[in-house]
């Protein structure tokens, strides 16, 4: 049973974080007594990333993008949105990282080049140096996407830079700080925003493999609307066919994510609904091995091996 105080606290988090517009009027009235802005700031840093996760975050429906920018007042720095650049942007970043601008959470998108620090630089420091400094002052970190969690594509076989994920990076340095992993290449916006609300207002959500259990406790295959096809042995034999995509290489059985129930881009689509096999982008070993291709086309006889 949720008591009134807890409920109001949760509602307040939604209000200050993502906008008051979506809440019913009586709740709003009760909330006016709660001071907004007491929540920590978010510093968003990009390492060896493609910005795909940031772009995915902009595809959010709830919260709306407007709320993310205004009511969601914690976003103190994001390279894609910040008006300021150059030395003044660095000054802002350093004030936070040195602990001079208040409490903050670090959001990290992208891998870290452990063996070639020069492969990722922000201003006058390497990405690794920024992360080491931030570890001393941040309240915790959210690793956003495959690259920040486990290295992602930059850490795939052939990895020239020694790309690794954030948790690994901190563990190698004996730094013991909270790191929450939100996997996916890219992440689903709900996975990130809903985790942040939880983190800021309620505390650390239940984690499995350092990832929020709410989104990552079950396998794509278990939740798949085509699981029935699998049981009936109705398999797609070539790309573009309906049916269970397992024999084309679908990685749903190896991948923990709630895509089959959540869907993407306004809830109107997701990979398997478009007959595209799951490529396991939310798996810690996504794309890791060269001899483990995304598709098993040759077994279907239309690749003359």
């Amino acid at each position: 049973m949720v008591d009134r105080r807890t409920f109001l606290k949760l509602a307040a988090s939604l209000c200050t974080t993502f906008g008051v517009g979506s809440l019913p009027a009586p709740v709003l009235a009760a909330l006016k007594k709660i001071t907004p802005g007491a929540v920590p700031k978010l510093i968003y840093l990009q390492g060896m990333s493609c910005t795909g996760c940031s772009i995915s975050l902009l595809q959010a429906d709830s919260p709306s993008p407007l709320s993310l920018i205004t009511d969601y007042s914690q976003l103190a720095f994001h390279a894609d949105l910040s008006a300021i650049s150059g030395k003044k942007a660095l000054n802002l970043l350093e004030k936070y990282i040195n602990g001079d601008a208040g409490e903050y959470f670090l959001a990290v998108e992208g891998a870290i080049p452990e063996k070639m620090p020069e492969a990722c630089v922000i201003g006058n420091k390497t990405f690794a140096e920024h992360l080491e400094a931030a570890a001393k002052t941040m309240s915790g970190a959210i690793a956003i996407g495959a690259c920040a969690c486990d290295g992602g594509i930059p850490a795939a076989e052939g990895n020239l830079t020694g790309a690794i994920g954030l948790k690994d990076f901190y563990e190698k340095r004996g730094i013991n700080k909270l790191v929450i992993n939100i996997r996916g290449c890219s992440v689903h916006p709900d996975w990130v925003w809903h985790t942040i609300i939880h983190l800021v207002k309620i505390g650390v959500p239940e984690l499995i493999n350092d990832a929020p259990a709410l989104f990552f406790s079950r396998k794509v295959h278990e939740l798949c609307p085509r699981y029935h096809d699998f049981q009936q042995e109705i398999f797609a034999k070539k790309l573009g066919e309906k049916g269970c995509l397992f024999k084309l290489g679908c990685l749903g059985p190896d991948t923990h994510a709630d895509c089959p129930t959540r869907w993407w881009n306004g809830g109107q689509t997701w990979c398997i609904d478009s007959n595209a096999p799951c490529i396991g982008c939310a798996s810690p070993t996504f794309a890791r091995k060269k001899d483990f291709p995304f598709y098993r086309i040759s077994e279907q006889g239309h690749q003359p091996v």
């Binding site: 795909g52 902009l58 290449c185 993407w264 109107q268 990979c271 478009s274 007959n275 595209a276 799951c278």
Partner: peptide
């Protein structure tokens, strides 16, 4: 978002289409 939703109808999802 609407432009990307349109693309995702045929692309499976955005970013990073699997279709």
């Amino acid at each position: 978002k609407k432009a990307n939703r349109a693309a995702a109808i045929f692309g499976g999802k955005f970013p990073h289409s699997t279709a």
